[in-house]
Design a protein around this nucleic acid. Structure first.
Lengths: 212, 212
DNA sequence: CCACTACGATACGGTATCGTACTGTAACTT
DNA sequence: AAGTTACAGTACGATACCGTATCGTAGTGG
């Protein structure tokens, strides 16, 4: 009798799964979620179609499984300052967007999400995973009394920080350089912060910023 | 002999073209660019497939023709102030994004643009058309000496203004309300503007921050 | 060593799509 | 009224999928 719950996986099974998933990733990156076909995966991976259906009940299941593996646990930076933490996150995001990977796959997921509720749920999960570090860093900043985030919703701040990057990657297709990131960061954080980063203006007003 | 260059179109021709294009739009909105099929258009519109191919050489040609008709000439507001003009544009954009139409079609265009250079060119044209009003308004503000846009690239400003809206519509799927637009506008424009015009609450614990 | 399991190969039925060919009919133009 | 043109209907060939069934083989684990 086979030990069903055994953690010792049949080598053959593991090999098949690995090869299928690898080929699925390749097709995802190259053709988007709509361009993934079981026949092609079978052809390219050398794994028989029968075997693929032995491990995943349907094409959708395989796609969901493959997509769900995306984006591991994002590290949460701790540079000491809110600005520094956010800059680190934005740099990482910019690098990911420049990668062929994301840029190619994500629009197809958005497209599918517009009509397929299952994929919409997947996209929602992925989005939350990717935005979580931003939210944590912002919340931490708020707890520490950072004036630039007081009284402003996290959702608004994330949109103002990340939105411009997504805009450049998928909509305007412009490069994301360091100056751009710096400006985005300044704009999102400068409010009621007492404009400390740029005290150029001769505001005779005393900048008395007292916390609580 | 038929007058080939005659501007008098055969009624039958015009009728067929109209019906086909109308059905193409419907399918575009409902199923995205990848979900448009000639067979379905023929079935739903009552126009024979043969006739469709008589007027458009291929499915791609029909799709490009249909998409190219999108987005008429956007009106350029003139409220007197840069902030007012931008607010008007953002309000209009938010309304368009809330419309089922755009929300559904655009991701599929982005997806296709990632792989099809012809559609990439189309998307580029569409994007420029939609962003043109923002650029004009910003340039006009810069010429008038508005401090908040001096020394800042138009591309950066557009990304900071529009990016957050796109982010909410397609990525985070949050509602775009008036408070959000106001915050986005403030953030994008506040730099080196002297922020004196923002008496936004001195972060006192005065409850209820009623709008001025 | 041997039962058991996963596997590859192949074929199949079913559906959906593109684009073309053919035929007879209706509408338009002159 | 006659000739030209566009049209609907239909059938077709060619692909490309999905998902299943069958069968013989090869690898695994006890």
């Amino acid at each position: 009798m086979k030990d069903q719950q055994s953690n010792s996986l049949d080598k053959r099974v593991e090999r098949s799964r690995t090869k299928v998933l690898a080929e699925t990733y390749r097709q995802l990156m190259r053709n988007g979620i709509a361009g993934v076909s079981i026949d092609a995966i079978s052809r390219q991976s050398g794994v028989s179609k029968t075997t693929i259906y032995r491990h995943w009940p349907s094409r959708s299941a395989l796609l969901l499984h493959a997509c769900a593996q995306f984006g591991g646990p994002a590290p949460i930076p701790d540079t000491g300052s809110l600005r520094g933490d956010l800059r680190t996150l934005l740099d990482g995001l910019a690098a990911q967007l420049a990668d062929e990977m994301w840029g190619s796959v994500y629009p197809s997921i958005l497209d599918a999400a517009e009509r397929d509720p299952e994929i919409a749920a997947l996209q929602s999960r992925m989005h939350r995973t990717f935005m979580a570090p931003f939210e944590q860093v912002l919340d931490r900043g708020r707890e520490r009394g950072e004036p630039s985030v007081q009284g402003r919703g996290t959702g608004i701040l994330v949109a103002e920080l990340v939105g411009p990057l997504f805009f450049r990657r998928w909509f305007s297709r412009e490069k994301i350089d360091s100056a751009f990131l710096a400006d985005v960061l300044d704009s999102a954080l400068v409010r009621r912060a007492g404009m400390r980063p740029l005290p150029h203006a001769a505001s005779r007003k005393r900048t008395g910023r007292k916390k609580s």
